[in-house]
Design a protein around this nucleic acid. Structure first.
Lengths: 198, 198
DNA sequence: GCCTGTAGACCGACGCGTCGGTCTGTTCGC
DNA sequence: GCGAACAGACCGACGCGTCGGTCTACAGGC
């Protein structure tokens, strides 16, 4: 009699959402399963019904977030012509998403790093996944002759790091992210030798 | 009769050293005070005699490491003439230090980020400290006319992030750091519009 | 020289809160 | 009435920090 509904918004969803909030707020180690349960307004039983452990939710959450961002980036890229334009579009999407969903960004960029050696692999995997995406397009830009031949693997990593840091600091300072977009874009493009435009 | 010596190497030193090892190996949350005590071959009592908490040692350790790196960078910078040469020297020092003391680098770059919101401030502080150092020299390079006028605050942050990421990935992959130095330096210099060199 | 008294470095067993995870229900759709 | 989806009381390990105690060094009275 007490409980009702929760069929249209499955319990699992509520749990994931709550997990996102709680992890974003308190960090992985700071968050307790009880916190997540309380925030989701479900129960410990429900939690362990859908997830095998705290680590399990976190990893699934991470994966979901990565997929969302990747999908957004791919969509933005698809709508542009020319390798450099694609790169710029991707950059804009990432900054927009980070700007609108700070908590999400916190989890992906900071919390994912905050797990100690045990999780190191999945964190590196995430970064590599994004780096690979960037590298792919940089390689195409090289092939198209838009930019000179260079070490695109290092370049892609450097970009990830630069974006990460600028976003993180800007989030922490409460500054406007889009404000940082322009100088950052200019820097990144210059860094691969595509500064002045054709 | 059992205990001996340890007069030339004070207990506190042993504890800090042990803390460095343990934190580097298991991460902040993975490390226990008992681990540190065991590794230092002292005692729980000694630990709490010198430090007020686990967090306390960690913060002191961080500070010590930051000072070491800063000192090394400043020294390298002092020996160079010209703003750009200074920047290059600083970059080389950072990569060298990271290369030689991977565990140290792990703590500063990875573990310091792995602490959750409570420690966020000190982590951001560390990055800001390095960023400020870089920005100072970039500003001088601008003043000298070596590079064009630009947003050096964003540039400094982007550099920190780029270096951080490249080093971290290289450390994780077991790759040679100095190998990444050349392309990274080229990128960073290009990014501020100082590509060709005089 | 020796003994007593004191300070403070150091020891390590244990208390106690915390938190992941389990287990016994209870409800509800079929 | 059976099983899946939940509820929530409970368990047990783990780890931080404490706290009563020891041991060494040294000062000072005799």
């Amino acid at each position: 009699m007490p409980r009702r509904a929760t069929l249209d918004t499955p319990t699992r969803d509520r749990l994931i959402r709550a997990a996102m909030d709680v992890f974003a707020q308190r960090g992985y180690h700071g968050a307790t399963v009880d916190d997540i349960v309380a925030a989701s307004d479900t129960s410990k039983g429900a939690f362990y019904h859908y997830f095998s452990s705290k680590q399990d939710v976190f990893l699934r959450l991470l994966d979901q977030l990565v997929q969302m961002v990747e999908a957004g980036v791919e969509a933005a890229i698809g709508g542009e012509e020319g390798a450099l334009a694609k790169v710029e579009a991707a950059l804009r999407v990432v900054l927009e998403v980070a700007s609108e969903h700070r908590d999400l960004a916190r989890i992906l960029l900071i919390e994912a790093a905050a797990l100690g050696p045990e999780f190191e692999q999945s964190r590196l995997g995430i970064h590599r996944r994004f780096a690979a995406l960037i590298q792919r397009h940089l390689d195409r830009a090289v092939a198209d002759g838009a930019i000179a031949h260079q070490d695109t693997r290092i370049a892609a990593r450097a970009w990830i790091g630069a974006i990460n840091e600028v976003v993180t600091q800007q989030l922490a300072n409460g500054g406007d992210l889009m404000e940082a977009l322009s100088p950052l874009r200019a820097m990144l493009l210059r860094s691969i030798g595509a500064g002045g435009t054709p």
